[in-house]
Measured scan of single mutants.
Amino acid sequence: MTYKLILNGKTLKGETTTEAVDAATAEKVFKQYANDNGVDGEWTYDDATKTFTVTE
């Protein structure tokens, strides 16, 4: 399945996607991606759209 991440960081905004077997796996990938890019904030997940959002 394809999962999407929306980044609403103070210095980085954008979107990315990943292929993962489940939401938990996608979340690990996205949290590492956000961490690597210096984005740390509040996370939400919408199962209907398979979209994670992180907002600083």
Rank of each mutant, 00 (worst) to 15 (best):
N37L: 06
T55V: 14
T51V: 10
D47V: 14
K4F: 07
A26Y: 00
D22S: 09
A34E: 01
T18S: 05
D36Y: 09
E27F: 14
A34W: 03
W43C: 02
D40H: 15
K50G: 08
D47S: 15
V21R: 10
Y45E: 00
A23T: 09
Y33A: 03
Y3M: 02
M1W: 12
L7Q: 02
V21E: 14
T16A: 14
A24M: 10
D36F: 13
D47H: 14
A20I: 02
M1P: 08
E42D: 12
D47L: 06
M1K: 11
D36W: 07
T18R: 06
E27R: 09
K31G: 03
K10N: 08
K10V: 10
D36H: 08
D47P: 10
E27V: 08
L5D: 01
K31H: 13
E42T: 13
A48M: 11
A23L: 12
E27Q: 13
K4A: 05
T18L: 15
D22N: 11
A20M: 03
E19P: 05
K28E: 13
A48F: 13
D46A: 04
V54K: 01
T17D: 07
T51K: 03
T49D: 06
L5V: 04
T17V: 08
T25S: 13
E56G: 05
T17H: 15
V21G: 09
D46V: 06
E56N: 04
M1T: 14
V29M: 08
E15S: 10
G41I: 01
E27W: 15
T49L: 13
Y3T: 00
E56M: 06
D46E: 09
I6P: 00
T17P: 02
K10G: 07
V29W: 09
D36G: 06
T53Y: 09
K50N: 15
T17M: 15
L7V: 10
K50P: 00
Y45S: 01
M1A: 13
E27Y: 14
L5H: 00
V21S: 09
A48H: 12
Y33W: 05
L5A: 02
T16G: 04
G38E: 11
W43Y: 03
T53V: 14
D36K: 11
T55W: 08
T49C: 04
V29D: 05
T18A: 08
A48Q: 12
T44M: 06
E15Y: 10
K10E: 12
T11G: 11
G41T: 02
G38Y: 08
A34M: 07
T2H: 15
T53Q: 08
D36N: 12
T44N: 14
F52L: 01
D40T: 07
L12D: 06
G9S: 13
A24T: 10
K13Y: 10
D22T: 07
Y3I: 02
K4C: 04
E15Q: 09
D47E: 15
T53F: 07
Y33V: 10
V54F: 05
L7I: 13
G41V: 02
T49S: 14
V21T: 12
G9L: 15
E19G: 06
V54Q: 01
K4T: 12
L7S: 03
K50Q: 12
T16Q: 14
Y33H: 06
N8Y: 06
A34T: 07
E56K: 03
K4V: 14
K13S: 11
T11K: 11
W43S: 01
T49Q: 07
F52M: 02
D47I: 12
W43H: 01
F30D: 00
Y45I: 02
T2N: 08
A20E: 05
Y33C: 04
T44C: 05
T16H: 14
Q32W: 06
T55M: 07
K50F: 09
K28Q: 11
K28P: 03
A26P: 00
Y45T: 01
E15H: 07
I6C: 05
A20D: 03
G14E: 09
T51M: 04
E27T: 04
T17L: 09
K10L: 07
